[in-house]
Amino acid sequence: MKILLIGATGTIGSAVVAALEDKGHEVVRAARNGPVMVDMTDPASIEAALTSVRDLDAVVCCAASGRLTPLASTSDEDFTAGLDGKLLGQVTLVRRALHLVRDGGSITLTGGVFDEPTPGGAFGALVNAGLEAFVEAAAIEMPRGLRLNAVSPGWVAETLEAMGEDGTRGTPASEVARTYLRAIEGTTQGQILLPR
């Protein structure tokens, strides 16, 4: 398959690229500073990235993220960081990609609801719950046999380690990548997939 992967240089994205290429897929890498440039907070950038690549079988977004921000944050902008990219950007991506992905192809997004509440994670939980509800509801409207799913990776071991935390509390990026493969190569539709 020919797959546009947004966020190809991040922790999860790099692992997904490796897993897809190991399976013989052609991966077109996209990132803020990648071969195909895209900013998930900018609808025009999303449109440009999608239209720059022809004959896509799948689109995957591993780019959108949000930082942990305390509920009592001093500014609304700090608290709501991630709304434009993680939620609205991925919704925009779906709306643009559904016209450009080949019949029977797939679009896979990234959610991120955690098993337990996390300090500073209230707004992120809201954004991710909204994204997952969108995926489940929008899947029935996908035309031409297109499939829409999201992966909810939870804590990634490498991310925890980069934060100075215990990486054993998370899932290795290579295992998370296998969950994206299930979404891309499988038959699931409207599902929120968790690493096994």
Results as ranks from 00 to 15, higher is better:
G111H: 01
T92R: 08
G130P: 10
N128D: 09
G34R: 00
A19S: 07
V94L: 09
A122T: 14
S75Y: 03
A31W: 02
D76H: 11
R95D: 13
E47I: 03
R95E: 09
L126W: 11
F114D: 06
Q90I: 00
L50A: 10
D57R: 05
E26V: 11
V36G: 07
S52D: 09
V101I: 11
V59L: 09
R54A: 14
R96I: 01
E77Y: 03
I46W: 11
A44I: 01
E26L: 06
R29V: 02
G112Y: 06
S75C: 05
V38W: 07
F134C: 11
V53T: 06
P119R: 13
V28I: 14
R32S: 12
G105A: 13
R29D: 04
S52W: 09
D76A: 15
L68T: 05
G112F: 02
L93K: 07
D39R: 09
L109R: 02
G13W: 00
R102L: 04
D78P: 04
R32H: 07
T69W: 03
D39Y: 10
V113H: 06
I12D: 01
S106E: 10
C62L: 00
L20K: 03
R67A: 12
P43G: 11
L131V: 05
G105H: 04
P70V: 06
E116H: 11
E132Q: 15
G112D: 06
P117S: 08
R32A: 02
V135E: 01
G34Y: 02
E77W: 01
V38D: 05
A81Q: 13
C61K: 00
T92M: 12
H99G: 13
E116L: 14
G121I: 04
D57E: 14
K86S: 15
G104I: 09
L93V: 06
L68P: 10
L98V: 14
F79W: 15
A48P: 02
V28N: 08
